[in-house]
C-alpha cells in the first residue's frame, strides 16, 4: 500500500462514466469537427455543449457506464419493509416515488447541499445534488452530471420545472429532479437555479437568443463600438474575453494572462454570452479574420433571435 495514492485528488475508477458525459461528448465533437490537416487546434463551440445536455443524453451516459458493471439491486428493492423510506422531506427538498422515477422537489434552492444528500440517502440513493446559478431560461435544466460505481441500465436523471414551463417565483412553481429508480451507483448532479444579484452564471448561454439580454441584436462580426453602444442602450454591462483567432479562422486561442489588456473600439466581436444578470461576456479579438473563429464559419442562425 502506497499512501501517495491518498494524495491523488481522484482515482480513475471514480471517473467511471464521464467518458459519456456531456463535457466529454462536447469535447469529442469539437475536436473531431476540426480538419486534422489544416486546423491545428480544437474549435470550442460555446453553447454547443449546453445544447447537448438533453435528458436523453444523460440517460445514455448512465446506461453506457453500466455496460461493464454488474447489476446490483438497490436497497429500495428490499421486500421486508426494512429498507429505506419511500418518501422523505426536509426543509430543503421532498422526495417521492412516481412509477419508475424518484421525483425530488426542491423547496429551497439556496439550501445547504448536505440537506439534499440527506434526503436522497434516506430513500436509498447516492445522489449529490448541487444547485448552480444559470440564466433565467435554463433554470431547471441539468447543467452537468457525473457518476461512478455500479449503475444499472438506467433511466437516467433529468431536471424540470413543475408544472412544466412555469416561472420560478410564481406560487406552486418548483424545480424538480427525476432520478430513475434503477440507479444503483453514485450520481453527482448540478441543476440550474436562478442567480442571486451579482452572481456569475455557471453555464454558458449565447446572449443573443430569444429571451436573453441581447435578444434581437446581432453581435457577431461587428465592431466593439457598435456592440457596446447597444449594450449601454439596454442598460447592461459587458466583460471581455480576449481571443486570438487562428489564421484560417477555424478555432482560437485564449491566453488567460492577457485578459486585462485594454480592448479597442475597432476590435471585432464574435459572440456574446450571458455572464451574470445584467452583464454580457463578449468574445473579442484585435485581429479580424475571414471566418468567425468561435464557429469556424458563420454563427448558427438558431442562436440569434432575429
Amino acid at each position: 500500500m502506497n499512501e501517495l495514492t491518498d494524495l491523488a485528488r481522484v482515482r480513475d475508477d471514480e471517473l467511471a462514466g464521464r467518458a459519456s458525459g456531456a463535457g466529454a461528448r462536447a469535447l469529442l465533437a469539437s475536436v473531431a469537427a476540426t480538419d486534422p490537416a489544416e486546423r491545428p487546434s480544437p474549435v470550442p463551440l460555446p453553447g454547443a455543449a449546453s445544447r447537448r445536455r438533453a435528458r436523453r443524453l444523460l440517460a445514455g451516459a448512465l446506461a453506457t457506464a453500466a455496460l461493464a458493471a454488474a447489476m446490483v439491486l438497490g436497497p429500495s428493492f428490499l421486500e421486508d419493509g426494512s429498507g429505506p423510506a419511500t418518501s422523505y422531506a426536509n426543509a430543503a427538498i421532498e422526495i417521492e416515488q412516481r412509477g419508475d422515477w424518484w421525483v425530488a422537489r426542491i423547496r429551497d434552492p439556496f439550501a445547504d447541499h448536505a440537506l439534499y444528500s440527506e434526503a436522497f440517502r434516506a430513500v436509498g440513493l447516492d445522489v449529490t445534488l448541487e444547485l448552480v446559478p444559470v440564466p433565467p431560461d435554463r433554470v431547471g435544466e441539468v447543467v452537468k452530471i457525473g457518476g461512478s460505481g455500479t449503475t444499472g441500465p438506467s433511466l437516467g436523471i433529468g431536471g424540470e420545472l413543475e408544472p412544466e414551463g412555469c416561472t420560478i417565483g410564481q406560487a406552486g412553481c418548483a424545480l424538480t429532479v427525476q432520478v430513475g429508480r434503477d440507479l444503483t451507483g453514485k450520481a453527482v448532479v448540478s441543476l440550474g437555479r436562478v442567480a442571486r444579484p451579482g452572481e456569475s452564471y455557471q453555464s454558458s448561454v449565447v446572449a443573443t437568443r430569444k429571451g436573453q439580454m441581447l435578444a434581437g441584436f446581432r453581435v457577431d462580426e461587428r465592431p466593439v463600438r457598435e456592440v457596446m453602444a447597444e449594450v449601454r442602450r439596454r442598460g447592461l454591462k459587458a466583460v471581455f474575453r480576449i481571443i486570438d483567432p487562428n489564421e484560417n479562422g477555424g478555432g482560437y486561442g485564449m491566453d488567460p494572462a492577457a485578459q486585462s489588456r485594454p480592448v479597442g473600439d475597432d476590435w471585432t466581436v464574435w459572440e456574446a454570452e450571458a455572464d451574470r444578470p445584467g452583464v454580457v461576456r463578449l468574445y473579442v479579438s484585435e485581429k479580424r479574420v475571414a471566418q468567425n473563429p468561435i464557429y469556424g464559419g458563420p454563427k448558427p442562425p438558431e442562436d440569434t433571435s432575429e
Binding site: R9, A24, A26, P42, A48, V143, S190, Q202, S204
Partner: peptide
C-alpha cells in the same frame, strides 16, 4: 497560450 472548451471545466469542477 491555451485552448479552452468551457463546457469541460464546468464538468470537472465537482472533482
Amino acid at each position: 497560450a491555451r485552448w479552452r472548451l468551457v463546457a469541460l471545466d464546468v464538468d470537472v469542477a465537482d472533482l
